[in-house]
């Protein structure tokens, strides 16, 4: 325990009422004098060093940043819904083929969709479903990631596209695989997807 003397000293130090220091409250009105570099104290020097260090780190980060990164970084983008009847028809067809257990036809159709409609999350969701049917949960997770990145509605209960339960199941399977055979890249993607599924206050 610190002594009462310490408390008194501390109080005097912070309020400036102690020896060698003037309090703003009780300070006599002093003429403001011009600023000179000699006035800089330790806190000033620490601050200047901190500003210089922060500026240096900022410069390095900006220098190292890939030019494309800025494009995808913003979360304030307005979502653009592309209405394409042809895509809708083909996605319906792919869903039917997948449901009828015809992997060869599904693979062909999905390859076409991926090549021509890679902007639509539903295509990647179907690719994930295909991989899941092929018993490849890691590949399925990879496609689900692309799907939810393109369209977060797949993880939103308030929308008709919600696929959260299925994706959660895949993540549990992949977690088991990663536990047996650690793979840093797969683990990174798994953790990202786990955080995505957990949700939060972000858009």
């Amino acid at each position: 325990m610190k002594s009462d003397g310490y408390v008194k000293q501390r109080r005097e130090a912070v309020t400036g009422s102690g020896p060698g220091r003037e309090s703003c409250r009780i300070a006599p009105e002093k003429e403001e004098q011009g600023f000179s570099l000699r006035d800089l104290d330790r806190l000033d020097l620490f601050s200047i060093a901190a500003v210089a260090a922060l500026a240096a780190v900022l410069a390095v980060i900006l220098w190292l940043a890939p030019p494309q990164e800025e494009k995808g970084a913003g979360r304030g983008r307005v979502q653009v819904v592309v209405v394409n009847p042809e895509l809708d028809r083909r996605i319906e067809a792919a869903e039917r083929v997948l449901a009828s257990d015809n992997p060869a036809a599904a693979r062909e159709l999905l390859a076409y969709l991926k090549k021509n409609f890679s902007y639509d999350g539903r295509v990647f969701m179907l690719l994930g479903d295909y991989e899941l049917r092929m018993q490849r949960p890691v590949a399925a997770m990879h496609y689900y990631r692309q799907a939810v990145d393109l369209n977060p509605d797949f993880l939103d209960r308030k929308t008709g596209l919600f696929q959260g339960k299925k994706i959660k199941g895949v993540l549990a399977e992949v977690a088991g695989i990663v536990a047996k055979r650690p793979d840093p890249a797969v683990r990174r993607e798994l953790l990202y997807m786990q955080r995505k599924v957990a949700g939060g206050c972000g858009g």
Partner: peptide, 20 residues
């Protein structure tokens, strides 16, 4: 953070304690 440090430096009355 750099801005906060600069604000701190520019708004100090050196040699004084806690402002009123």
């Amino acid at each position: 953070l750099a801005l906060l440090f600069l604000i701190g430096i520019l708004n100090r009355r050196r040699g004084y304690g806690i402002a009123p």
